[in-house]
């Protein structure tokens, strides 16, 4: 395997909330490199800084100090408009609470990022249909979020995350709100996406989720405490 350019390159990342005595250091200098095609699970107990890391990796929040290269691009110097473009083109989010737009059909939800990217309606429809087909929801195109089960909603969210062909799929506790069967379905889909070459970063505290990853990074008190590769026996079963 040749060495492709890393998707994520983080150096000395710190994040501080509050000021003075009340200041809390959520990250104390994190270094992390994620190569293209990797499947990384970021683990840690609550308060370990893993959500903060996820927000910074997703360009939703800015670090107090440190350097973050996403797909070779230094994110630190970007203004708000450029950041919205980065979130749109290079990152696909999957949230714990699905975060679909209410009262909007599955198809329209998946088309939305393409709409913001300025893709034409016909092309948008084609790509959204393909993404929904990939997560096995071709039968539920015109259902609204409140007409879908939790697992189905999360599959729509995954389809929405990958429809723009982002450099990285960023999932924050994607199975936190799901039953075990839906959890398995979602994890199968994520594993399959990774197997087809998509870079995946999952924030989780569940071992079941981490077991699918090729690499587990454990955060403790805002620092990387453990970074190990593991065989991913489940990764290609689906």
């Amino acid at each position: 395997m040749s060495a492709p350019a890393p998707v994520v390159q983080v150096r000395g990342l710190t994040k501080e909330y509050g000021r003075g005595d009340a200041a809390v250091q959520a990250l104390r200098g994190v270094d992390l490199t994620v190569a293209a095609g990797d499947f990384v699970a970021v683990m840690g107990s609550s308060g370990s800084g893993k959500s903060t890391l996820m927000n910074i990796l997703g360009c939703l929040d800015t670090p107090t100090s440190g350097r973050y290269l996403l797909d070779g691009l230094d994110v630190g110097g970007l203004d708000e408009h450029q950041l919205s473009l980065v979130r749109n083109r290079r990152i696909g989010f999957v949230f714990q609470s699905f975060n679909l737009i209410p009262r909007t059909t599955a198809l329209a939800n998946v088309e939305l990022p393409l709409a913001y990217a300025g893709v034409r309606a016909r092309e948008r429809r084609r790509r959204a249909l393909a993404a929904l087909d990939l997560v096995g929801l071709s039968e539920r195109l015109h259902h609204r979020p409140n007409e879908l089960s939790g697992g189905q909603q999360q599959r729509v969210a995954v389809a929405r995350a990958l429809v723009t062909a982002p450099a990285m799929l960023l999932a924050d506790e994607p199975t936190g709100n799901l039953d075990s069967r839906s959890t398995a379905e979602i994890l199968d889909i994520v594993s399959r996406l990774n197997a087809s070459g998509r870079t995946v970063v999952v924030i989780t505290h569940e071992d079941e989720v981490a077991a699918r990853a090729k690499r587990v990074v454990r955060l403790v008190d805002g620092l990387v405490a453990e970074d190990r590769r593991q065989d991913a026996p489940w990764a290609v079963t689906a």
Binding site: G58, L60, E80, H81, S84, L85, R87, N88, R89, F93, F95, N99, L100, I101, P102, L112, P113, Y116, A117, R160, T164
Partner: peptide, 16 residues
């Protein structure tokens, strides 16, 4: 507010 947050997360620019 939450919907606005979602839209921004998936790349809605300020203008949109």
């Amino acid at each position: 507010t939450r919907e606005i947050g979602i839209r921004k997360a998936i790349g809605a620019p300020r203008g949109a």
